[in-house]
């Protein structure tokens, strides 16, 4: 039960962070990506702030035997650059530029009952399902 409680609190914090940062305003995200327009560099500070906090936590965690819940760490180990990584990131970037939402802000703004976000997020989940159908159930 405790890992779920911690995950719930982390989800709340994540949503507050996204809202405070401006990530739940698609026009602000698009203004960040619009280098040759009225550029708004704010979102670089979102990534910078997050990395500033997470990087030392990661370095600390690397020295731990197991996570605080007692569970073993389950972290990515791959280092290869495969076509799926490249193609997936490119498709994601195109969709991000079109809608101004990435997954976290899509869910958070759906919780806020934004109609645009609800439309986007319904399609996002459909995309997750499509990927699972294509790649996981063979």
């Amino acid at each position: 039960m405790r890992p779920a409680l911690v995950a719930f609190i982390a989800g709340l914090l994540f949503a507050f962070g996204l809202a405070l940062a401006g990530m739940t305003q698609p026009a602000k995200v698009v203004a960040f990506l619009d280098l040759s327009g009225d550029w708004d560099p704010s979102l670089a500070f979102v990534m910078g702030g997050a990395i500033l906090v997470y990087m030392p936590i990661f370095r600390f965690a690397k020295r731990m035997q197991a996570a605080w819940s007692g569970q073993a760490f389950s972290l990515p180990t791959r280092n290869d650059l495969d076509p799926r990584l490249i193609a997936g990131a490119a498709l994601f970037g195109i969709g991000w530029g079109v809608g101004g939402y990435c997954p976290g802000p899509g869910f958070t703004a759906s919780g806020a009952l934004s109609s645009h976000a609800l439309t986007f997020t319904a399609a996002l989940i459909t995309g997750f399902v499509a990927h699972t159908l294509v790649f996981s159930r063979r």
């Binding site: 405790r2 890992p3 911690v6 995950a7 609190i9 982390a10 989800g11 914090l13 994540f14 507050f16 962070g17 996204l18 809202a19 405070l20 940062a21 401006g22 990530m23 704010s42 979102l43 500070f45 979102v46 990534m47 910078g48 702030g49 997050a50 990395i51 500033l52 906090v53 997470y54 936590i57 990661f58 600390f60 965690a61 731990m64 197991a66 996570a67 605080w68 819940s69 569970q71 073993a72 760490f73 389950s74 972290l75 990515p76």
Partner: peptide, 23 residues
């Protein structure tokens, strides 16, 4: 506000790493 929001996101991700051992 963007920097502070980012730090909250980092804290949340840190909590998931330290307690649940996940990304």
């Amino acid at each position: 506000s963007s920097g502070l929001g980012g730090m909250l996101i980092g804290l949340s991700a840190g909590l998931i790493l330290l307690y649940n051992g996940r990304i």
